[in-house]
Write a protein that binds this DNA or RNA. Structure first.
Lengths: 139, 139
DNA sequence: TGACGATATTCGTTTTAACCATTATCCTGG
DNA sequence: CCAGGATAATGGTTAAAACGAATATCGTCA
């Protein structure tokens, strides 16, 4: 005896799990975890070098854990740290050349995954879906 | 210079991360990880006791890891194992009373989270979104 | 029956996530 | 100047995920 709402929630969760699984398959050959991929994307989006604390906010992660996540990315040569000149408390993180190259190489299969996932869905529907998803973050 | 597709992919990923984060906040007070919650839902859906291997298939997890995931759930008294009478190789997993009670107590806040997330979105759009998400798993 | 495939467990390892307390460094306002 | 807040890093712990190898048990079919 399940309500329509519960069914809907189940659908959403299952879709999320499914996408997540597929995404991990794409990422695995590159030796990047989903968390690391997320961090790399955040760093890329923060054009002028993003503050560690900002990464933590976007990822709902403690500062100390951001430090170590960034440590790992540095260990792989994907990212680098530098002190902010104006406020030396702040550490800015930016992609290295290697990191830029890696995330760009990832774009293709990730895009392909999405394209495949939404194959057969009308473009207008996809656009609406994205609108709704955007709304979701605000709520 | 980002294409519209890349932007869309970013939106989808960010929405997923956001939802995941919120969900974890909901789950944390109950001491259940997202993975465990997923497993509990799968067990609940497999009415007559689900085979361990089936859990692994749905979660893209190795058998040996399913065993230990189930071990942990048993440790919390949420789930129990039993041999299939017909084919004794198969181990069936089902919710205990405690497990049933827990997942039912989780339904409310999870539903509330979703309701809040989709507040302001027309019901029809939500239905369409769910249609599209369902389609996603098939592709 | 007996070999093989299916199902699950056990053991061991490595990596990461999540949490917390403490320390270090730096900025700012009074 | 300096006290207190902001920002990170360090160190330590626990639990989990992810992977692989080996073992145990059971069913089926040739």
């Amino acid at each position: 005896m399940r309500s329509a709402e519960e069914w809907a929630v189940g659908e959403i969760l299952r879709a999320g799990e499914h996408l997540n699984g597929r995404l991990n398959e794409v990422l695995k050959p590159f030796g990047v975890s989903f968390t690391q991929y997320t961090a790399l994307r955040i760093v890329r989006d923060g054009e002028e070098g993003i503050a560690s604390s900002s990464i933590g906010e976007r990822m709902h992660t403690r500062d100390s854990d951001v430090t170590r996540l960034v440590d790992r990315l540095i260990g792989r040569g994907l990212v680098e740290r530098s002190r902010d000149a104006a406020d030396r408390r702040i550490v800015r993180v930016r992609l290295t050349e290697q990191g830029t190259e890696l995330i760009e190489r990832l774009d293709a299969p990730v895009l392909a995954l999405m394209a495949k996932s939404f194959a057969g869905v009308k473009a207008k529907r996809v656009r609406r879906l994205i609108e709704v998803l955007g709304h979701l973050r605000g709520a």
